Computed example of a mutant assay.
Amino acid sequence: MNKVGETVLEIDLRALEHNYNYLRSKIKDGTRFLGVVKAFAYGSDSIAIAKKLETLGTNYLAVAYTNEGVVLRDAGIKLPILVLHPQEVNFTTMIQRCLEPSLYSPAVLTAFLRTAKELQQKEYPVHLKFNTGLNRLGFSENEVDFLLEQLLGAEQIKVTSLFSHLAASEDLNERDFTQSQIEAFEKISSILLGGLKDRPFRHLLNTSGIINYPHAQYDMVRSGIGLYGYGNEASEDEQLIPVATLKTFISQIHKIGANQSIGYNRGFISNSPMVTATLPVGHADGIGRIYGNHKGHVWINGKLAPIIGNVCMDMIMIDVTGLNCKERDEVVIFGKNHSADKMAGYADTISYEILTGISQRIKRIYKDEM
């Protein structure tokens, strides 16, 4: 077994390339591909991921907020970057750093037009988002006439794309609802394409949409979780490779007698003699307290070991009774053999939350050789 000296998040850029190529194989050759790198690229490293995607031929990147885009620009990323949830206070910075906003409401459109005019912009690229059923962000169908009226005389901006977001593309029991979203987007976007002087491209599909609704790929698709190795469905997960592996090691092994307590608040009491191991990772690193007391498991020497006692800020304890392990041995919290989906299942949550919750204090290391 490997021996490590610190807790690390291993980022496998080879796995990212595999996942990108797999998802690309699901769409037409001429369809653009947008890689979502918000939230530190789903908890990994947005700069490393963006640079790799750029070399792979990705057409666009997307972040949630302006500061995430600024980080990428500071790192030398040249690809177009869509900001999915821009805030008015950042509009000037967005324009200065060539970041492209998603405009999703009359108020946001009006405010961005005002800023673009103040900065003497002409045909600055913007994207219009429409609400077709997710009911989170987006213009509604009854605001299409307002949009056409505002945009026809607005020389400061140029509508680069029209898009929406599917609410349940991973759930095949919701096919009718998803199809209704596709139809709503087709109706709205067709009206705008007929009324705008420019011809923006269209995009609707997320990772599960790419897999389940390829007929609705339009001009571009967007992938987040799929790039990082998760397809929201078991058969697709088999085709993808997790990019991030959270590794730690055994700091100390204890032989515990019967009726002894382990951890804060005496959260675990041994029923019989046992062997425990302490690991240098805790809830400050993203391993929530919910995983304590046999709720979560880790992977060690090809075996699962349960977390016992309450998760501490910087440490967890595991039961290694009967396992072949020793101090300094490597332990995998999640990764290829013990996926973030599996970890998420212990806490009745989703892989997204596990991945994005990993603390930035954990060192990132990289694998990028085939």
Rank of each mutant, 00 (worst) to 15 (best):
K342H: 08
K28P: 05
L72E: 03
E100D: 12
E186F: 12
T110C: 05
N59L: 10
G5M: 12
K326T: 14
K363A: 01
E68M: 11
R32A: 15
F130I: 12
A340Q: 02
K187Y: 10
S339M: 05
P106Y: 09
F91S: 04
D176A: 15
F139D: 03
D74C: 10
T160V: 13
F177Q: 07
V331A: 01
Y366Q: 01
D237A: 04
Q252I: 11
S223W: 09
D314N: 13
G335D: 03
G30F: 12
L72V: 06
D171L: 13
S235M: 11
D219F: 04
L72K: 07
Y291P: 03
V8S: 04
T7C: 10
V144E: 08
S251H: 05
T115V: 14
S164L: 08
E353N: 14
T248L: 05
N293L: 04
E100A: 03
I365S: 00
A107S: 14
K26P: 09
F91V: 11
L205H: 10
G357A: 08
R24N: 11
A41C: 07
A340Y: 05
E330V: 13
I11W: 02
S25H: 12
Y60C: 05
S46Y: 07
N301K: 05
L246E: 01
F163V: 10
L304E: 10
A15V: 02
G288R: 08
T278P: 05
E68K: 08
E353I: 02
N293A: 06
E54H: 09
I256F: 07
G263E: 02
R136Y: 11
V221I: 15
E17V: 06
K26M: 15
C325M: 09
I307C: 00
S339P: 02
G43P: 03
I287P: 00
E149N: 10
C98V: 06
L9W: 00
I241N: 00
T93R: 15
